[in-house]
Nucleic acid binder design. Structure first.
Length: 495
RNA sequence: GGGCCGUUAGCUCAGGCGGUUAGAGCACCGGAUUUUUAAUCCGGUGGCCGCAGGUUCGAGUCCUGCACGGCCCA
């Protein structure tokens, strides 16, 4: 980029040269570390005067004349080390560690130390170094030590810097893996099998979304990155498995905002002989379990809002609630009436969208956005739910629920449609909707899936969760990009 | 897609109504310093002010366009 970067860069390159001249490998192979910083700090009183080997990145350096303090950061946090003059050597040499550290060890470098755990005058647990190991040289300067990395763009473009810099950021992503671990445990404990189904699909389906398209040379065919794994997990029910799930990276070639990202993590789970009531129970149990495990309480705070996950969650009817809020029977009203209402509510596309997308938008605006605590929205209109069974009592709706929290759609579940004739007809109705202009509907019916259903699929409940959004809620992050390690940004010209 | 905001040293930020050589802190380099917690003190290096045009005697500052990013809206 600029020459000035070179200056610091050049100084550090020079140090590498000098290290080599001293016979010290600036990039050695291995170090035996036997304790981490959190362990040493939290058990310091029991460990005083004992010897440890410890390693990490230098994040702070305070040089006195004959004494150096430095903070080494490892995965778990920071630990102070102290080096006294003429009391420690560089491993494998007779060099005095203090002089060496002062001259060659910069902020950003990795070092290892062997020494005794002590407390300093001020009580800080500190390793008093006896032997110093140089472990890796960094050539670039780290972000500013007090304010840290603030530039949003750099935070996303160079996540490694953000992670070096911010222990809070590390916590967010550690929590993400813990959430995924806990979900896995929850489902495995209930007899679910985790499977992997194709990411590349010849016909995409299971949702309404625009796909990413690619080409397989070996098969001489176009393929799509999945927008959902639903139709494959159901094939597994046909195959005879009774409880299945998959953490599915799904891909939707659409906009990016606080809640949407083109590559996101879904969890879908299916259970034979269940209906959507059973799935509702599963969702309630799973989320309250997660929240309790992570917070020790059912109430969490997200961006200043308290959210109560105490089961059972609230339940409201999609159609009845929407009709009530709109002031007329919305499902049976004619499209002009709905369009009129959409106009009143200032919904974009009120004059373009088809009836069902208008209804869905009205729902989001009038009801979804108002929801705070976890709430099940039940029994959606049939036309927008082609994979769900018709409601056992009311013919105009399906057995479906969506779980909303703070206006966010967190889960979506059905009593799964397993009647192949009905399924084929619903797909055909969908194609008609596509012809009427809804380009998010897949253009082709997955006939192999229909074929599978024709061999018989047991009655089943199914559910899909938006994992990124759950992680957002449980880590108090404002944007989905803050729970995705390496979000995509537009490319920048190279320096 | 629309609106608003941002882009100045490696990082974090100042730069009044346009005015002469663009500042600070951290980091870095040199010196002092044996108990610091963002250590301190003295001295120093480091700028295509996002990019391209325009207005002007004169632009980091005003105007236009573009790029990248953020927030909000649809």
């Amino acid at each position: 980029m600029s020459n000035e970067k070179r200056d610091e860069y050049a100084i550090r390159q020079e140090k590498i040269k000098e290290l080599l001249e001293l016979g010290i490998n600036p990039y050695p192979y291995k170090f035996e570390k036997n304790a981490d910083s959190v362990y040493l700090k939290s058990n310091a009183d029991d460990l005083l005067e004992k010897e440890f080997s410890f390693a990490g990145r230098i994040v702070l350096k305070r040089v006195f004349g004959k004494l150096i303090f430095a903070h080494l950061r490892d995965e778990s946090g920071d630990l102070q080390i102290a080096i006294e003059k003429n009391k420690a050597q560089v491993a494998g040499t007779t060099l005095d560690a203090l002089k060496f550290f002062k001259k060659y060890c910069d902020i950003g470098d990795f070092v290892g130390v062997e020494g005794t755990l002590i407390r300093t005058k001020t009580g800080e647990p500190t390793i008093l170094v006896k032997r110093l190991y140089f472990l890796a040289k960094g050539l670039r300067q780290l972000p500013e030590k007090w304010h840290g990395l603030q530039d949003r763009e750099l935070i996303y473009r160079a996540r490694y810097l953000h992670l070096i810099d911010s222990l809070e950021a590390r916590e967010v992503f550690k929590k993400r893996t813990r959430i995924i671990y806990l979900i896995r445990k929850f489902l495995n404990d209930r007899g679910f099998y985790e499977f992997e189904t194709p990411i590349l699909q010849p016909v995409y389906g299971g949702a309404h979304a625009k796909p990413f398209k690619t080409h397989a040379n070996a098969l001489r065919t176009d393929l799509y990155l999945r927008i959902s794994d639903e139709l494959y997990l159901k094939r597994l029910l046909v195959g005879g498995y009774e409880k299945v799930y998959e953490f599915s990276k799904d891909f939707r070639n659409e906009g990016i905002d606080r809640l949407h990202y083109p590559e996101f993590l879904a969890l879908e789970a299916y259970a034979a002989y269940w209906d959507y009531n059973d799935m509702m129970k599963l969702a309630e149990e799973m989320l309250s379990f997660l929240v309790k495990e992570i917070f020790g309480s059912y109430v969490i705070e997200y961006q200043g809002e308290k959210i109560d996950f105490t089961p059972p969650f609230k339940r409201i009817s999609y159609i009845d609630e929407l009709s009530k809020r709109a002031g007329f029977d919305i499902v049976n009203a004619d499209t002009d009436r709905i369009r009129q209402k959409a106009k009143e509510e200032e919904l974009s596309g009120w004059n373009k969208l088809d009836r069902w997308r208008l209804i869905d938008k009205l729902f989001d605006k009038l009801i979804g956005d108002e929801i705070k605590d976890p709430t099940f929205v039940l029994d959606h209109p049939k036309a927008i739910s082609p994979l769900a069974k018709t409601h056992r009592e009311k013919n105009d709706r399906v057995e479906r629920f969506e779980l909303f929290i703070l206006g966010m759609e967190i889960a979506n579940a059905f009593s799964e449609l397993n009647d192949p004739i009905d399924q084929r007809k619903r797909f055909e109705d969908q194609l008609k909707q596509r012809e009427e202009g809804n380009t998010e509907i897949p253009p082709e019916i997955d006939m192999d899936f229909v074929n599978a259903l024709e061999y018989g699929m047991p009655p089943a409940g199914g559910i899909g969760f938006g994992i990124d959004r759950i992680v957002m809620l449980l880590t108090n992050q404002h944007s989905i990009r803050d729970v995705i390690l390496f979000p995509q940004l537009r490319p920048r010209e190279e320096d």
